[in-house]
């Protein structure tokens, strides 16, 4: 038996090298895998709390109607009624909290309208879409359309 062990000594050394490699891997894993990983799922549990603590950047539709009643009314009567104000005007929680602190930037009507209404065969047929270049030759859409209630 002892003879066998002596003759297989190199294999024991090899096994030790692999064990050392395995142990090093476990140590690295211990050090770099963030605590709480896998508690709720395949992610860091603390990420939930971190996300919750991030300040909200969108004010929500109700906040807009407090001051901009006219525009909200127009929007509700037209085909953009399903589009939230901040979908075009951007996140405005800071503006809602203090209107003088952050003024909303007016959207660029050429680029913004094309984002939804540029013709693309993959869009449903009944969705209003145009080849902007042929339709207006690059002129701003709001020179003919009223974006809050988009009729010509």
């Amino acid at each position: 038996m002892r003879n066998h062990v002596r003759e297989a000594e190199h294999l024991i050394r090899l096994a030790l090298v692999f064990l050392a490699g395995g142990a090093a891997f476990l140590l690295i894993r211990q050090a770099v895998v963030p605590p709480g990983f896998g508690v709720h799922g395949h992610y860091r549990a603390a990420a939930l709390e971190e996300n919750r603590l991030r300040p909200a950047v969108y004010a929500g539709q109700a906040a807009c109607s407090d001051c901009h009643e006219e525009q909200v009314k127009q929007r509700a009567a037209g085909s953009h009624r399903g589009v939230a104000c901040e979908a075009c005007h951007g996140p405005l929680a800071r503006h809602a909290a203090d209107p003088s602190a952050a003024a909303p930037r007016p959207p660029d009507p050429v680029a913004l309208c094309r984002r939804c209404h540029e013709a693309d065969a993959a869009k449903p047929k009944n969705f209003p879409q145009v080849v902007a270049q042929d339709h207006s030759g690059g002129e701003a859409c709001n020179s003919c359309h009223q974006p809050h209630r988009p009729k010509v």
Binding site: N3, R6, E7, A8, H10, L11, R13
Partner: peptide, 19 residues
């Protein structure tokens, strides 16, 4: 690469061959 073992006796090579 020898891992400190210089044993290349016929018996150790036989074990190597089997493994």
């Amino acid at each position: 690469l020898t891992l400190g073992s210089r044993n290349v006796s016929p018996e150790s090579r036989r074990i190597d061959d089997r493994v």
